[in-house]
């Protein structure tokens, strides 16, 4: 859920990278952190097991001046992909503004991709939310591995909703497509925010809030 600090002219957005285990969610953030200039990125934090599997989440804050007159802060999170950590995934999804679903292109991972995508939709339901109202994109990752599933097939399996999501072919460990998907999801999130704000300001307020100042 976006948060605006009007005094500091800042808008905060939360973007979550979701997907099955070992699909490349953490690798996305690691790549971004390795190449982003220092004035754009904050400290990257990874909460991993000893086997480098995400235990809780990874976190990377980025900032941009993409909305005129404001600093836009994007907080990028990953979720742990392993099935046993579903409660953790729900916690990380709290207040999400945008989603990047990272699918593994290998044939043997299709079942896990589908299960994770269904799990995402189930978890959103617990917050009474749905993919219909949350900007989201799909990454078909690991496209460099020989003999992976064709994009058309992955699209057929994972992208069959009434409104199709934008999809990107990526090789996260090399950074291919990682920037494109980040830029796209950030733009989608900001556009949604601007659109919602415009609608709210054009709609006559039924119960306008009191305009009084907080006492000193």
């Amino acid at each position: 859920m976006s948060f605006v600090n009007l005094g500091k002219r800042e808008i905060n957005f939360k973007i979550v990278y979701y997907g099955p285990p070992l699909s490349g969610k953490t690798t996305n953030l690691e790549f971004l952190h390795s190449v982003m200039p220092d004035d754009v990125k904050g400290k990257m934090t990874m909460l991993s097991t000893q086997q480098d599997r995400t235990l809780y989440f990874d976190f990377l804050p980025l900032k941009s001046s993409a909305i005129k007159g404001f600093i836009s802060r994007f907080q990028l999170y990953t979720v742990p992909g392993q099935p046993i950590y579903n409660q953790t995934r729900r916690i990380v999804l709290t207040g999400v503004d945008g989603l990047v679903f990272v699918a593994d292109s290998q044939w043997g991972e299709m079942e896990n991709n589908v299960a994770s995508f269904e799990n995402l939709q189930e978890n959103l339901k617990t917050f009474k939310r749905s993919l219909d109202e949350i900007p989201h994109i799909i990454q078909f990752n690991k496209r460099d591995i020989p003999g992976v599933a064709p994009v058309e097939y992955m699209d057929f399996v994972l992208n069959q909703r009434a409104v199709k999501a934008l999809s990107f072919e990526t090789v996260a460990r090399e950074g291919t497509g990682v920037y494109e998907s980040l830029n796209m999801i950030c733009k989608m999130v900001m556009s949604q925010f601007i659109k919602d704000h415009k609608m709210a300001t054009e709609r006559p307020a039924a119960n306008p809030p009191p305009a009084k100042e907080t006492p000193s």
């Binding site: 009007l6 980025l62 993409a66 909305i67 830029n183 925010f193 601007i194 709210a200 809030p209």
Partner: peptide, 25 residues
């Protein structure tokens, strides 16, 4: 309260719709 509640006159627009937010190095 939303931004519309406290600053309805705020016009939000993207700095440049055609540019990428984050430039690939």
């Amino acid at each position: 309260q939303s931004l519309a509640d406290i600053a309805a006159d705020t016009k939000l627009e993207l700095a440049d719709d055609d540019d990428d937010l984050f430039d690939e190095p």
